[in-house]
Structures are given as structure tokens and as C-alpha cells.
Design a protein around this nucleic acid. Sequence first.
DNA 1: AGCGTGTCCTGGATGC
DNA 2: TGCATCCAGGACACGC
Length: 295
Amino acid sequence: MPELPEVETIRRGLVQHVLGRRIEEITILSGRAVRKDPDPAVFADSFAGRRVDEVARRGKFLWLAAEGTDRLLVVHLGMSGQLLVHGAPPQELPRHTAAALRLDRGALLFVDQRTFGHLHVAEPAPTPDGLAGGAGTARPLVPREVLHIGRDPLDPHLDQAAVAARIVRTTSAIKRVLLDQRYVSGIGNIYADETLWAARIHPATRGSALTPARASALVTTAREVLARAVAAGGTSFDALYVNAFGESGYFARELTAYGRTGLPCPRCGTPIVREVIGGRSTHLCPTCQQLSLTD
DNA sequence: AGCGTGTCCTGGATGC
DNA sequence: TGCATCCAGGACACGC
């Protein structure tokens, strides 16, 4: 499931093989993948014949900027989307290929088994703080549909004190807060569980039960977990997440809580338990992450 | 306004 | 064994 570390790993692959390339042709193979822009001509009119000059990301949203147009080609991978670079246009497209970009050298395929991902042609919107929009871009712009999500924990312009202040004002479970992209973006179910385990906070703890200092420390912990996962190339459980070159990431072996129901907590040995919190499968150590009466 | 739930989708896992 | 149902998850539309 692509979360920030997986999307960032893919972004870095695209910087190597798509940045500077000219988009010759865009072929849409799945109408659902472009449900926000159902007309394929919108893609062609905006990007065909143009050279990619930025590959940017905020949270789990990825976008390409191209010379000669303000419009941005947004990609969200949903839960099974892949962006795969090919040195040459492939003879046969992989199953579930939703879109194909033929480049002046090679090709970029958008493949998506569970079809939660999408491509979208977005208008740029200025960032409210006037600072760079995200990783991989120096421009103070983001796609309009990205405007409402927060900066992610790896973004140097994240206003961490403001995020902490906001966290302590909500009565929602902290697990839900971490998954809510409006606070900080980029965290999904895997890294929410990993972050809360690392911070020793029970996922059902209300935001309002934390002090601003503890909420801020939680964001710092998220940053550390995400950075380690980026360094490992992301988490691959199966073939659903691979980088732009089709390779797996190695963070699965470093997971401490997520998906480890019944296995010993790496810190204290207590078996990890699974609960449903905020409607999501949640993994935690019942010894290290206790819910106090005031939580 | 803020909070909580339901929905989209596919294929692997589980249950009878 | 085979069929049916369940479950996973990100983002957002709803409803209270």
C-alpha cells in the first residue's frame, strides 16, 4: 500500500528516468483511472509534446510539471497503483494497465489492480505560506486538489507547532488524526501503527489527551519512521508495491507492530494485538501502549 | 463545526 | 472440493 515512503521511492525513480523526457503520447486505458477528467483529450492537450521539468510530491500525491504549461499531471496511487518506467515502449502491457505515457525515450505505465488510484490534470494553486509546494519542487505551488492536505513530516516547511496545537484541539482517536491528511499528510495505516508504537502511544488516545509537546514529539517520531522507511525503499508485502523499476522495498523486515498480530513486541516481548480503531485494522503492544483513564 | 460511518474495487483468504 | 463471503485500504461523500 503506497504511503509516503513508497511514493517518495517512486518519485526518486521518476527523477532518474522521466525528468527531462518529453511526453509524446498519453493513452488512457481505464476510464475509472481518469474519473475526474474523463476526456482523454484533456491529457493530450495539456501534456503531449511537452518536456517534464519537475517530479514533485506532497504526502501521497505525486505530480509532474512540464515546460510550457501551468497545468500539473497529478497521480494518486490509491492502494495498489504502480508507476513503472520502461526503457522502451513495452510490446505487451501488464494486466491492469490504466494509462501509458510514451516518452521520447521509453515509457511510463500507470498500473492499478484495485482501481483506487487516479490521474488528473490539475490547475496550480499558490501555497498559502508562499513556500515550496513539496518534495522535488522549488515553486510555491501545488495542484489545486492538494491544497487542502497538510504538509508531510518530511517537508522542511511543515509548521510542526501549528500541527501540534491542532492535534490537542480534537477529541478524535490519535490513530484517526494521523490518517487524516489535513493534519499532516503521507501517513497511512502501516506508518500510523509504526509511529504510535515507536511513540508508545495507544492508538485510541484522544488528541486532546496529549500535551502540545507530546503531540509535537509524535510528529517528530513520524518523521523518523518515515525517513527510515524511505531509506529502505518502502514496504513491500507482495508484488503490489514495487518502485518505478519493479523492485521491492525492504522496510517490511523492520516493521515493529503493523501486521505482526501475535508476534512479540520488539521492545518488551508482549504479543502484538490487533484492534479496530477508527474503522481501521490497528496493531499495538498492549504493554508499551497503554490507554490511561484520562486518555 | 466536528466527528463518525459508508463507499468505491479486486483478488487473496477464510468459512461452510 | 467448491462456492460464497469477507477483508484489506485512501480519500472523500454523507449524515448526525
